Simulated assay, not measured.
Amino acid sequence: MNRKGRILLVLALVAVVGMAFRVSWNALRDIAGAVGADGTAAMLYPFVVDGLMALALVATLVLVGRDRSFALKVLGTYTGASLVLNYVHGLVPELHGRGVDWGRLADWDPANWALVLLATSLPVGSIYFGSDLVAKVLHHRPAPIPTEGANAEESTNTEMIRSTADQPQSAPAPVVVTRLTVPDPAPVTLGKSTLPGKPLPALTPPTKPVPVESGTPRPIPAESTRPRRATGRVPEAAKSTRPKRTPEQLLAEARAATADWPDAQITAEGIRRTVHTSPANARTLRDTILAERAAAAEAVA
C-alpha cells in the first residue's frame, strides 16, 4: 500500500474510533453521575476508561515479551469494564435522565455493589496502569534493524581487516623431488686384523641419497660485512683430557669388554656405549669381534 492509501486508512480509523467514543461517552457519563460524580467529573470519566484503552493499544504495538502481555491484559480488562457499564446503561432507562438514586445501578444488592465497585475503581486503575504503561514504553529500547548499506559497509570492513592467511589462494604447484647422490667419503682404515687371511674392513659410513626439491632455491648464508674478531687460543681447561685412541686401541678395549659376552649380546649399540665410540666404529668393531669368534670356533672344530 502506498503512502496516500495508508494516510486514508488511518484517517478512517480515527473517524470510526471517534464516533465510537462519542457513543460510549454518553453511557459512561451517566454512570459516573449515578455513582456520585459532579458535572465536570462525569464529563471526564469516559476519557479515564476509553482513553486508557487507547493507551494500552499503543503500548501493545511498541512493547515486546512480558511487557506486551501486560499491556494486552490492561486493554482486555478496561474493554470488558467499558462493555459492562455500557450494557448496564442500556438496561436501566432511569440512568438516561438521571432519575436513579445515587449509588443504585441494579435492583439486586450484590449486583449493585459489584457495579458500583467497578465504576468507582476504574479511575484509580487508570492512574496505576497508565503510569506503568507509559514508563514501560519510555524505557523500551527496540533492537536496531541493520540496513543494506550497513551490511555492505560491515562486509567491506571485514574483508579489509582479514589477514593474508585467510585470503583465498590457488593451490600450490606440485613439488618434484629429485635425488642427489653424495660422493662416498674416503675410507678410514682401522688397521690389519690379527687373524691371518682376514683383513679388517674399512670404516666407511653408509651413503644415503639426499632428497632435493626441484625449483626451490637453497638457502645461502648472508655474508657479514663486520670483521671477525680473533677468538684467541682455547684454554687448556676447556680441552678434552681424554687422548685420541687409535683403531688398534679401540679394538683392544672392545675385545676386553666383550670377552665374557655371548654372541647374541654383541651388538653395535652395546659396544658403542661400553667403549664410547662412534656408531660407525662400533659396527666395525662388532663385525670384527664376531668374525674372530667364528674363526676361533672353526679352528677348534
Rank of each mutant, 00 (worst) to 15 (best):
S214T: 13
A230Y: 07
P211N: 04
R229A: 10
E236P: 10
A254G: 03
P217S: 05
L203R: 03
A237V: 15
A237T: 15
P227M: 05
P243E: 12
G215M: 06
P262H: 11
W261R: 06
E213F: 11
Q265R: 15
T204Q: 03
Q249V: 12
R233C: 04
R245M: 12
P205D: 01
P235R: 14
L250T: 03
S224W: 00
L203D: 07
I266N: 07
P211R: 02
G215A: 05
R228G: 10
A264M: 05
A252T: 13
W261S: 06
T231G: 14
L250P: 02
T216P: 01
V234G: 02
A238Q: 13
V212C: 00
A256S: 14
R226T: 14
T225V: 06
P205M: 00
A238W: 12
R228V: 13
R233K: 15
D260T: 15
T207E: 00
W261I: 08
D263F: 02
T207G: 00
P227Y: 00
A237Y: 13
P217T: 04
P262W: 04
P206H: 00
V210R: 03
R218C: 08
T231W: 06
P219H: 11
R228T: 12
E223I: 15
P211T: 01
R226M: 09
L203P: 00
P262V: 10
Q265P: 01
K244S: 14
E213S: 08
